[in-house]
Amino acid sequence: MALSYKARRRVALLVLVVGVPVYIALCWKLTSLFERPSILVELAIYVGMGLLWAIPLKSVFMGIGQPDPDE
């Protein structure tokens, strides 16, 4: 079932306001459990985690900045 434009906007806002900060806190906690790796490995981990949240939510954010297609 596809979400309507308004529903996708609401879900996108919820993800950005609540989901991303929670995800950042979880990633921060996860990386703090291990010893600090070299700077390049740490950079690769954070870049990977930064992309990991966006891939499943790509369909929610597509077209959000465009005018409502139903109007």
Rank of each mutant, 00 (worst) to 15 (best):
E42Q: 13
L57M: 14
P67S: 11
V20W: 00
S38G: 15
V11K: 09
M49V: 05
R8F: 05
M1K: 06
D68T: 03
G65S: 13
V17G: 00
V17H: 01
L33R: 08
I55L: 15
L52G: 09
I64T: 01
L13V: 07
G65T: 08
Y46R: 07
L26S: 11
K29W: 14
V11E: 09
G65I: 07
G19A: 08
L40N: 08
W53D: 06
I55H: 04
L43A: 15
P21K: 05
G65A: 11
A12W: 03
K6W: 00
A12T: 03
L30N: 00
Y5C: 07
Y46C: 03
A54C: 07
E35A: 14
K58T: 05
W53S: 13
E35W: 11
L26D: 11
V47H: 00
L13C: 09
R36T: 15
P69R: 06
G19T: 10
W53Q: 12
W28N: 14
G63K: 02
Q66W: 09
E42L: 14
G19K: 01
P21T: 05
Y23H: 10
S38I: 03
R8M: 08
A2D: 05
S38A: 11
G65W: 13
K29D: 11
M49Y: 08
L51C: 12
R9H: 09
V15K: 01
A44E: 05
T31I: 00
D68K: 12
R8H: 06
S32V: 00
S32M: 07
L33N: 01
W53P: 03
K58F: 11
C27K: 01
A12M: 04
A25T: 02
R9A: 04
W28H: 13
R8C: 05
D68L: 12
E71R: 15
S32T: 06
V17W: 00
C27G: 15
R9F: 00
P69H: 07
L52F: 15
